[in-house]
Design a protein around this nucleic acid. Structure first.
Length: 245
DNA sequence: GCAGTGCAGGCGTCTCACAT
DNA sequence: ATGTGAGACGCCTGCACTGC
């Protein structure tokens, strides 16, 4: 099949949405075919991949664009959506672009179907995490617990602990955190831990020691979490840093 | 020895509906 | 706006195993 043939699919004509997504600098928008090749991208993705035109991205696989194992990881996630036909929603991730610029985002991917219901690829968006909404009415009440979280992320055993600090019920606390960070409390804790581990991986500590320092029970728990969030194992990430130092 | 992965069980978290 | 409860889901843990 010629690639151009694939782009003539009548329904849904997602390409018409691109001009709208081009206006959102904090949103990456893309569609991929069954193989995982980009066939629609927005301006934000083009910029972050350092391409001069969108055409440079079209027809290419993640492996062609992103650093080594990272591209393979994105491709594997795509294939999971395409094969299972199940959407991937509200996935907290760290994205790394070809220049190794990193950013936290929340990703949603859905299988894309034609008129007959057959899966023809996937459609996805990744929205950058915004700064916490300090104007939210609940900010004052949770601020102290966030300070505590930032300093003691390795010692926190439950979200209830943070809710108690904020003098809120668990329900109130979960809603407040959602309102302020657009994340669940658990996602916020994971983000804090992974951020810290990313800093530590630039040093020479063992991966097991970093896992423990960031609040994980053992190296395997840390390794799994890290890979889930970043797409790389801690060692792969460290090697990537080393190659680009 | 270190690091990554697979698996199973248990438990915490999240979401939703509903009541107050 | 807040609290509560149920059910589903996903994460964590511990262990074993493998590869480097």
């Amino acid at each position: 099949m010629q690639y151009a043939d694939f782009c003539t699919i009548e329904y849904p004509d997602v390409a018409q949405l691109v001009p709208l997504f081009d206006l959102l600098p904090d949103v990456v928008f893309f569609c991929k075919d069954r193989v995982g090749r980009y066939w629609v991208v927005n301006e934000t993705l083009r910029l972050r991949c350092g391409c001069r035109s969108k055409q440079e991205l079209i027809g290419r696989l993640p492996e062609d664009l992103f650093p080594l194992e990272l591209g393979a990881s994105y491709a594997s996630q795509d294939q999971q959506v395409i094969r299972s036909g199940c959407a991937l929603n509200h996935r907290l991730e760290v994205h790394m672009y070809p220049d190794l610029q990193m950013g936290w985002c929340v990703t949603h991917k859905r299988p894309l179907r034609d008129r007959n219901g057959s899966i023809m690829g996937l459609i996805g968006i990744s929205r950058d995490l915004r700064s916490p909404n300090r104007n939210a009415p609940t900010w004052r009440r949770v601020a102290s617990s966030i300070d505590y979280l930032n300093e003691h992320f390795a010692e926190i055993n439950s979200i209830q602990q943070l809710a108690t600090l904020a003098q809120l019920s668990l329900s109130q606390y979960e809603r407040a955190i959602q309102q302020i960070f657009e994340l669940t409390p658990k996602q916020l804790l994971i983000k804090t831990r992974i951020d810290a581990s990313i800093q530590l991986l630039a040093g020479n500590d063992s991966i097991a020691a970093i896992g423990l320092a960031c609040g994980y029970a053992d190296h395997s728990a840390f390794s799994r979490q890290f890979r889930l969030i970043t797409g790389l194992t801690p060692r792969q990430y460290r090697q990537l840093l080393g190659r680009n130092a």
